[in-house]
Design a binder for these strands. Structure first.
Length: 272
DNA sequence: ATGGCAGGTTATACCTGA
């Protein structure tokens, strides 16, 4: 068979799975019900030696790339579309497995990020985890600036751990001092978006005036009723790809599955 | 205003997450 360019819109998903080994059944169910062509995972919590590579191949992801740390962090790109040039870079000055990139057949760069959560105290002087998070985002911004290319065909997905818009959180006012929605983080993310000329794909389809979440705490027993969510998970595309966006879904269902992750997947349908 | 849960680990208490 000759290699063919991708001729139909493809479905690219991002999901913080919070342990890929514990939630293999969730991945299988998601693959069956939502038919992603590419699934980018974060927080796989598995070193490469214990990553469930064969089980994910069984689920139908014929192409897989992964990089994990023992018990923490970890990113993976699972795909039914061939990719080349698996690579990763270090951001934020600590050698965590928080970035993985591939080039999809057809030449689109895909970057999967897991930005540090940042701890509890939103003060870089008092909380090294918050300082690390801000440094990580600043490094991403510098990286975008170095790689600036208006014609580039790029997709950046992941658990970016920042909810930038007022209606990306259940209460803007109550979360202004809560890590993930503080003004300093939001400003850092706005700078990153502007520098990379990224298009926030979900907000192309859900107006900024409408609440939209991808994460609900495990600590709220009635997560669906209380609905105190945040939109921490994102799919961004470069301007050259924005015109191909067909739809973005953030299904709440997977948050209610047995042994659920506290994040739900985000899925973009896009013509490349 | 607070506390509430969950996963992983050379585990059985403590770190992480957000």
């Amino acid at each position: 068979m000759p290699r063919q360019a991708i001729s139909r819109p493809i479905r690219i998903a991002s999901w913080n799975i919070n342990s890929v080994r514990l939630r293999l059944a969730n991945v299988a169910r998601f693959a069956a019900e939502f038919q992603p062509d590419v699934l980018c995972l974060q927080e796989t919590k598995a070193g490469d030696d214990v990553f469930p590579d064969a089980a994910l191949a069984e689920i139908g992801f014929t192409h897989r790339a992964f990089k994990g740390d023992k018990g923490y962090n970890g990113v993976a790109i699972l795909s039914k579309i061939p990719f080349t040039e698996k690579r990763y870079e270090s951001f934020g000055g600590i050698d965590h497995s928080r970035h993985l990139a591939v080039t999809l057949e057809g030449g689109v760069e895909l970057h999967d990020f897991y930005v540090p959560a940042g701890g509890d105290i939103p003060d870089a002087a008092a909380n090294p985890k918050f300082a690390h998070k801000l440094q990580f985002v600043a490094d991403m911004t510098a990286w975008c600036k170095r790689r600036r290319d208006p014609a580039a065909r790029r997709i950046l997905v992941g658990d970016l751990n920042i909810a930038p818009l007022e209606h990306d959180v259940w209460s803007h006012k109550q979360l202004l001092k809560v890590v993930s929605h503080t003004p300093v983080e939001v400003a850092a993310m706005e700078k990153l978006i502007a520098t990379g000329e990224w298009v926030d794909s979900a907000r192309r389809f859900t107006p900024a005036t409408e609440k939209l979440y991808s994460w609900w705490s495990y600590r709220s027993p009635n997560w669906d009723i209380a609905d105190k969510g945040r939109r921490l998970d994102h799919i961004w595309v470069s301007p050259a790809l924005a015109g191909g966006l067909k739809a973005v879904e953030t299904p709440r269902g997977p948050r209610g599955w047995e042994v659920a992750s506290d994040h739900v997947p985000v899925i973009a349908t896009i013509a490349l």
